[in-house]
Design a binder for these strands. Structure first.
Lengths: 277, 277
DNA sequence: TTGAGGGTAGAATATCTATTCCATTTATTG
DNA sequence: CAATAAATGGAATAGATATTCTACCCTCAA
């Protein structure tokens, strides 16, 4: 056995199989071909299933795994599964790099390293954003904002910067905006004038700010159309919302850059303005 | 009870879980949250593994699958696996739609095009940031913040979101922060207590907000150490500053995403906290 | 306090899993 | 052709799996 390495990438495995292909015996070659053609089946199936689909007995599958250099089918399957995980997580490389830099705690503590850490975090957040937001939601949100007379903004705690930014842009565009900041007393009173002719944009991430969780249902109950920007479908501002933008993989507050929601709200505002012409 | 068919998409399942979340009991809610946050773990893990990672007994996992409407864990797992398969083999339709929106991004008025425009704008802003900020400035700024008793934040108008975000993070880290927002009257009075033992972080971009331009020189004259974040060495908050971060190529307000300054201030705050240990 | 109902956790279980083993077949070599 | 080695397929097995079952524990109401 040449390389029975424990940690092997899928691409490396493909290379290894291709290289050993000629040296394998008939049955094992047949399995090699099937395996390269149906990697997903290997990743998710059992030995019996793979055996049946490739037309060989189960024991041959195990022998094949041994021939490639693995301890057994299960071990080989891990490599095929890693391919699936990598495919669904675009920030996989970035995360790996980040974990590496975390290990180097000496370098990781220098301000310059911290900055580049946040930059790469933000980069992957943007990639995730553009992949997870769909046209349907954008169109629906734009329509709501266009029809609205006044636009109410609800974003407290860590989300407050996003709300203030959206307020700034909307006001620049000439829209009437009510920023619910709770200054000077009850935040309820600030929102008392909201009607179904208006619209609400709510922004909230874990841990969800209590006042946000309390106020949102009230406004929804008064039939104010609501656009929610949050990190989970279980957040308190999802139930009753007309449109929900779910921004996944928001890290814990200390590492949260707000880059993704900032981009999103600005795109909403500008997109609405362009569509209005 | 609703009846999720055998052929259920992952998105539909997410919706179903979110909908039933409220009606579930404590343990089951806990599982719902874990499952939505770690879909890959559910797709590839065994009942025992999922149970351990989510901190519940295995039987609870099975009860959860039943509660959602599946015959058992295995059945539910199929849906999570379909997500992995879909991720690795994107449908031609989705690819086509994405390429179309990318083509039109220059002229595009559709909300989706606007979003991708802002995302790419933000991406390049981040690249520029990491290239233009140097270690020397970061170290100097970190030293100032560490020594400071109180930290005054000055960012008005379009820069206000950056200031509020920095205020939030610094307060989370236990630092004393004064956010100069001008609420309730003169912004001068809010800053009156600042001394050379404190520090000032000023953020301002074109067009420079008048109050910022007026207040900054006053504080500098009182020997308050100042860190400036701006877009030009000709801006009114450069003269007298101890450290200047120049973020170039900031587009006009309508296209300004604030992504770069948001990342920078957060890296400053966290970098200071890490260096303090 | 007492009683009832749903919720829960952990042990018990029947099923399925990957793997090994060995008799048989197939290929290779002198 | 004979002799030997390699490869194969299927049965046997030990271990892990999802699921079920039951005693216990809360919560709440009378």
């Amino acid at each position: 056995m040449n390389k029975p390495s424990g940690a092997m990438s899928y691409d490396e495995l493909r290379g290894a199989i291709a290289q050993k292909h000629r040296a394998l015996s008939g049955r094992l070659q047949q399995i090699a071909e099937f395996v390269l053609d149906h990697p997903t089946d290997v990743a998710l199936g059992t030995v019996a299933e793979v055996a049946e689909r490739s037309g060989v007995p189960p024991s041959a599958i195990v022998r094949f795994a041994h021939a490639i250099g693995f301890g057994g089918f299960t071990e080989m399957q891990q490599v095929f599964r890693s391919r699936l995980v990598a495919g669904v997580a675009p920030s996989y490389k970035a995360r790996l790099a980040r974990m590496k830099s975390e290990e180097k705690s000496v370098l990781g503590r220098k301000p310059a390293a911290v900055l580049s850490r946040f930059v790469s975090e933000a980069q992957s957040a943007l990639v995730t954003l553009s992949q997870s937001v769909h046209t349907r939601e954008l169109d629906a949100a734009t329509a709501i904002l266009m029809k609205a007379r006044d636009i109410y903004l609800l974003g407290l705690g860590g989300s407050f910067p996003v709300a203030t930014h959206l307020a700034y842009v909307l006001r620049k565009l000439g829209r009437r905006v009510v920023l619910l900041d709770g200054i000077g007393g009850s935040i309820h009173e600030q929102s008392h004038a909201a009607t179904p002719e208006d619209a609400l944009v709510a922004i909230s991430f874990r841990n969800y700010y209590p006042d946000t969780a309390r106020l949102f249902p009230e406004l929804v109950a008064r039939r104010v159309p609501a656009i929610s920007i949050t990190d989970s479908l279980l957040s308190p501002i999802v139930q009753g919302a007309s449109v929900v933008f779910e921004i996944q993989d928001m890290p814990e507050p200390a590492l949260r850059t707000l880059v993704a929601p900032m981009c999103l709200v600005q795109a909403l505002a500008i997109g609405m303005d362009l569509a209005a012409d």
